Lab assay of single mutants.
Amino acid sequence: TEVDLHLGDITIKLKDVSEEIVKRAKELFKNGWSAEFVKKWIEEAVK
Results as ranks from 00 to 15, higher is better:
residue 14 L to M: 05
residue 28 L to P: 00
residue 33 W to K: 14
residue 6 H to W: 08
residue 21 I to H: 03
residue 2 E to F: 14
residue 15 K to V: 14
residue 15 K to A: 07
residue 31 N to A: 14
residue 19 E to S: 07
residue 38 V to Q: 00
residue 7 L to P: 01
residue 30 K to V: 11
residue 24 R to I: 08
residue 6 H to R: 11
residue 29 F to W: 12
residue 43 E to N: 08
residue 37 F to R: 15
residue 43 E to W: 13
residue 27 E to Y: 13
residue 27 E to P: 00
residue 22 V to S: 03
residue 35 A to P: 05
residue 30 K to T: 12
residue 17 V to C: 05
residue 30 K to L: 14
residue 30 K to C: 06
residue 21 I to T: 04
residue 47 K to H: 11
residue 11 T to R: 06
residue 16 D to A: 07
residue 10 I to N: 04
residue 25 A to W: 02
residue 6 H to N: 08
residue 40 K to C: 09
residue 30 K to W: 06
residue 4 D to N: 12
residue 1 T to E: 13
residue 34 S to P: 09
residue 47 K to A: 14
residue 18 S to K: 08
residue 9 D to C: 09
residue 18 S to D: 12
residue 23 K to F: 15
residue 24 R to M: 13
residue 6 H to P: 06
residue 25 A to C: 03
residue 30 K to I: 11
residue 11 T to S: 09
residue 35 A to K: 04
residue 1 T to M: 14
residue 42 I to A: 03
residue 17 V to W: 05
residue 45 A to L: 09
residue 17 V to S: 02
residue 5 L to Q: 02
residue 13 K to D: 06
residue 43 E to H: 08
residue 41 W to A: 01
residue 16 D to S: 06
residue 4 D to M: 12
residue 25 A to F: 03
residue 6 H to G: 04
residue 17 V to M: 04
residue 1 T to R: 12
residue 2 E to H: 10
residue 25 A to T: 01
residue 4 D to W: 10
residue 26 K to E: 09
residue 28 L to F: 07
residue 23 K to S: 12
residue 39 K to L: 15
residue 7 L to Q: 01
residue 17 V to P: 04
residue 31 N to V: 06
residue 20 E to H: 11
residue 32 G to Y: 02
residue 25 A to N: 00
residue 38 V to P: 00
residue 34 S to T: 11
residue 29 F to R: 02
residue 38 V to I: 13
residue 14 L to T: 03
residue 39 K to A: 13
residue 18 S to G: 09
residue 1 T to V: 13
residue 7 L to M: 07
residue 35 A to C: 06
residue 28 L to Q: 01
residue 12 I to G: 03
residue 6 H to E: 13
residue 37 F to I: 09
residue 31 N to M: 15
residue 11 T to F: 07
residue 42 I to C: 03
residue 19 E to Q: 09
residue 27 E to K: 08
residue 16 D to C: 11
residue 15 K to H: 13
residue 24 R to Y: 15
residue 36 E to M: 12
residue 8 G to T: 03
residue 18 S to Y: 05
residue 9 D to L: 11
residue 9 D to H: 14
residue 8 G to R: 03
residue 3 V to P: 05
residue 5 L to P: 02
residue 44 E to W: 15
residue 2 E to W: 15
residue 39 K to V: 13
residue 17 V to L: 06
residue 23 K to W: 13
residue 25 A to S: 02
residue 23 K to Y: 15
residue 21 I to R: 01
residue 43 E to S: 08
residue 47 K to T: 11
residue 36 E to C: 15
residue 28 L to Y: 08
residue 40 K to L: 14
residue 29 F to Y: 14
residue 44 E to P: 00
residue 40 K to I: 12
residue 46 V to P: 02
residue 12 I to F: 04
